[in-house]
Amino acid sequence: MGFKLLSKLLVYLTASIMAIASPLAFSVDSSGEYPTVSEIPVGEVRLYQIADGVWSHIATQSFDGAVYPSNGLIVRDGDELLLIDTAWGAKNTAALLAEIEKQIGLPVTRAVSTHFHDDRVGGVDVLRAAGVATYASPSTRRLAEVEGNEIPTHSLEGLSSSGDAVRFGPVELFYPGAAHSTDNLIVYVPSASVLYGGCAIYELSRTSAGNVADADLAEWPTSIERIQQHYPEAQFVIPGHGLPGGLDLLKHTTNVVKAHTNRSVVE
């Protein structure tokens, strides 16, 4: 069995187990497998329904001669939608809004960016022009300005110390501490036991640490421990890039980060 097929099978099995364990909360999309990078042309966006009122959005972007996937989250909030992270750029984010209108038909009224990198804030200006209120932590807003990236308009308070959590509509926002970046936030959907790890969490097929220019490698494993301790009931975990899975993604990420750190020390 090929690795790609095995990865998709694991996603399907995880979703099936969740649907059985929580039949009222989960209505997993039966329309197909989780979209992969090879299936999404740059400039297009796919939506994948995880649970009743919960979707991931998947886009792709060219970077350094390669094409990478990027995940975000959409959560229903009454007759409105909360968006977590842009679709990595203005063109993708405009396509995301169009796809949401086509498939869901509810307005996106608020959006949260989970850290300051372009795959999370690139497209904020498109959201703002569409009347979406954009939010991020003060740290993310400051770092985005320093980096020359787009800056969300509103500040999220109460997320300055490791372990801080605040309720934001249908989700809980959690600051686990520094990891992929010093400002990275985690998003949890309690009604569906869905954990969105953003770039602080890796997919299972990833074996290298990737972009760690703004990471705190020493603190990252401790931050992941905080996530595990705060959300032990999480059933569906979405990484910032690639295929979702279960809580095993947290341990896998820790292993990859520690291996990278150990290699760096040896070198």
Results as ranks from 00 to 15, higher is better:
residue 157 E to K: 11
residue 11 V to N: 13
residue 234 A to Y: 03
residue 186 I to Q: 02
residue 201 I to W: 04
residue 228 Q to K: 13
residue 3 F to K: 15
residue 206 R to N: 15
residue 203 E to L: 04
residue 71 N to L: 02
residue 87 A to K: 00
residue 170 P to R: 05
residue 249 L to C: 01
residue 32 G to Q: 10
residue 243 L to Y: 14
residue 103 Q to S: 14
residue 126 V to L: 10
residue 173 L to A: 03
residue 50 I to T: 05
residue 125 D to A: 09
residue 266 V to E: 15
residue 141 R to H: 07
residue 79 D to W: 08
residue 192 A to N: 06
residue 211 N to K: 09
residue 99 E to S: 12
residue 12 Y to E: 12
residue 189 V to L: 05
residue 43 G to V: 03
residue 166 V to Q: 11
residue 123 G to T: 05
residue 58 I to E: 06
residue 206 R to V: 15
residue 78 G to N: 10
residue 215 A to S: 13
residue 10 L to Y: 15
residue 147 E to V: 15
residue 156 L to R: 03
residue 27 S to H: 13
residue 195 L to R: 01
residue 165 A to I: 14
residue 258 K to W: 08
residue 32 G to E: 09
residue 75 V to P: 02
residue 137 S to K: 07
residue 169 G to W: 04
residue 26 F to C: 11
residue 93 T to S: 04
residue 152 P to K: 01
residue 204 L to V: 11
residue 83 L to H: 00
residue 267 E to A: 05
residue 14 T to P: 14
residue 154 H to Q: 09
residue 40 I to V: 15
residue 26 F to R: 14
residue 65 G to A: 10
residue 59 A to T: 12
residue 75 V to K: 02
residue 259 A to G: 14
residue 48 Y to S: 10
residue 181 S to M: 02
residue 33 E to H: 09
residue 114 T to R: 01
residue 25 A to R: 14
residue 217 L to T: 10
residue 40 I to A: 07
residue 226 R to K: 09
residue 99 E to C: 06
residue 13 L to N: 08
residue 183 D to P: 00
residue 48 Y to D: 07
residue 185 L to H: 02
residue 113 S to C: 07
residue 14 T to I: 09
residue 36 T to I: 13
residue 59 A to W: 03
residue 218 A to D: 13
residue 119 D to R: 02
residue 192 A to H: 07
residue 62 S to E: 09
residue 215 A to E: 07
residue 201 I to L: 10
residue 151 I to D: 03
residue 50 I to S: 03
residue 251 K to T: 14
residue 224 I to N: 05
residue 58 I to R: 08
residue 226 R to G: 05
residue 141 R to A: 07
residue 266 V to M: 12
residue 36 T to D: 14
residue 228 Q to I: 11
residue 227 I to R: 03
residue 66 A to D: 15
residue 136 A to G: 10
residue 13 L to I: 15
residue 96 L to Y: 01
residue 152 P to Q: 00
residue 59 A to M: 04
residue 57 H to L: 03
residue 206 R to A: 15
residue 57 H to M: 01
residue 85 D to H: 03
residue 176 P to M: 01
residue 152 P to A: 03
residue 117 H to L: 00
residue 110 R to L: 07
residue 239 P to C: 00
residue 227 I to W: 04
residue 133 A to P: 14
residue 235 Q to A: 10
residue 187 V to I: 09
residue 13 L to F: 14
residue 57 H to F: 01
residue 41 P to Q: 11
residue 147 E to C: 08
residue 169 G to D: 05
residue 47 L to Y: 00
residue 186 I to W: 04
residue 182 T to R: 14
residue 62 S to G: 12
residue 107 P to T: 11
residue 150 E to F: 02
residue 40 I to P: 12
residue 200 A to G: 04
residue 20 I to Y: 09
residue 42 V to H: 08
residue 147 E to A: 15
residue 96 L to D: 00
residue 41 P to A: 12
residue 16 S to V: 13
